[in-house]
């Protein structure tokens, strides 16, 4: 044991009473602290509002560049333009009589998205259940990186795979006339939406407490019954949010659909024929914008497509926020 006093600093046992540093701020210190504190906070706040500014700028510029599409023809033409845009399936911007009907594009986007979800939702939810309820800890530690790497592969690489590997395979093994079609795009989009669906739904199901599961097991339910009857209903908001987030991922995806969907702007008919080429909103923007002169009607029309897409994902986003908020609130109550 050492002594409290050592060389250098010597301390009287009564030193405990001596407060050498003032406990009161001097007026100048007080003022400086006040100013610096508020100034610092204001700067930090302003930096934080960058995201807000970004959102507003995105909306402002996309709207600004798409408005002329509707307004160039004068007041009466606005409605006709809106009707044309949403009901005409013909997208012929470079025809002598250009037509800007985005119906086929909107349908195309929804078509591949639906195709992707048909595959991704059941697989993703089952995988989510596996990770939250079934897999032992060690297996989960292996599965998670696999899913993360699936999410990490860039979309253009998936598109490359679709064109270079999957399309020839479809052509030779399933006898399609063209390997780049709705089926190809949907399959790849499903793989891309999977990580989102899995991780969000897994979170939702993990958040359902252990007690409620134990209650169910205690009543003699099997694991499957517990999951189906208790866990999934309790986590339904989060699971729904997972599906919506997966849908957003698929509908907003550009490179894969551009490369793999065949880019023929028509509504598939018959509707179940996945081997047809289709064209999506995102692929149209990506494909056309490069050859479009600025401030042409075509340019404005492409921005209008972008605005439609933006509003679509924005409302989906609000919906998922609402659902996740509900899921969180439910968790809080419990």
């Amino acid at each position: 044991m050492t002594e409290v006093s050592v060389q250098g600093e010597k301390r009287n046992r009564n030193a405990a009473a001596e407060f050498t540093r003032p406990l009161l701020l001097s007026p100048s210190e007080d003022l400086a602290g006040y100013v610096m504190g508020h100034l610092g906070l204001t700067i930090l706040f302003l930096i934080t509002t960058t995201s807000v500014a970004a959102v507003f700028l995105i909306f402002y510029f996309v709207i600004r560049e798409s408005l002329p599409f509707f307004t160039t023809g004068g007041g009466a033409a606005i409605l006709a333009r809106v009707r044309e845009f949403f009901t005409d399936p013909g997208w012929y911007p470079s025809a002598t009589e250009p037509r800007y009907g985005a119906l086929a594009l909107i349908v195309g986007s929804l078509y591949v998205t639906a195709g992707a979800l048909v595959v991704a939702v059941p697989v993703g939810l089952l995988a989510g259940v596996f990770l939250s309820d079934i897999a032992p800890f060690n297996l989960r530690q292996i599965c998670k990186p696999v899913i993360e790497i699936l999410a990490a592969i860039p979309s253009v690489a998936y598109g490359f795979f679709a064109v270079m590997v999957l399309a020839p395979w479809l052509q030779t093994h399933l006898g399609f006339s063209s390997g780049t079609n709705a089926l190809n795009a949907s399959l790849i989009l499903a793989v891309m939406a999977l990580p989102t669906i899995i991780s969000v739904s897994e979170d939702a199901m993990t958040a359902v407490g252990r007690e409620i599961r134990e209650a169910s097991y205690g009543l003699g339910a099997t694991r499957a019954e517990t999951i189906i009857n208790v866990v999934i209903p309790a986590g339904h908001s989060g699971i729904l949010a997972a599906v919506i987030l997966g849908m957003m991922r698929a509908i907003g995806e550009t490179m894969v659909v551009w490369m793999a969907s065949g880019n023929a702007s028509r509504i598939p008919s018959p509707w179940w024929d996945l081997s047809q080429s289709i064209r999506t909103m995102t692929a149209t923007i990506a494909g056309d914008m490069g050859e479009t002169p600025k401030d042409s009607e075509h340019y404005y029309a492409l921005f209008t497509v972008g605005l439609t897409l933006l509003l679509f994902t924005f409302s989906l986003n609000l919906l998922s926020e609402y659902l996740l908020g509900k899921a969180r609130a439910g968790r809080g109550r419990r």
Binding site: A54, I58, F61, V62, M248, T282, I285, G306, F314, E321
Partner: peptide
């Protein structure tokens, strides 16, 4: 709350719309 909502919105904007925005704002404006 608004800031948080905007961050979430930003995360959900499709990447091609970022491209349109970049074109209209950074390149043109």
């Amino acid at each position: 709350k608004i800031i948080r909502m905007c961050i979430n919105t930003l995360a959900g904007v499709p990447s091609i719309v970022y491209g349109l925005f970049g074109l209209a704002f950074f390149v043109v404006t």
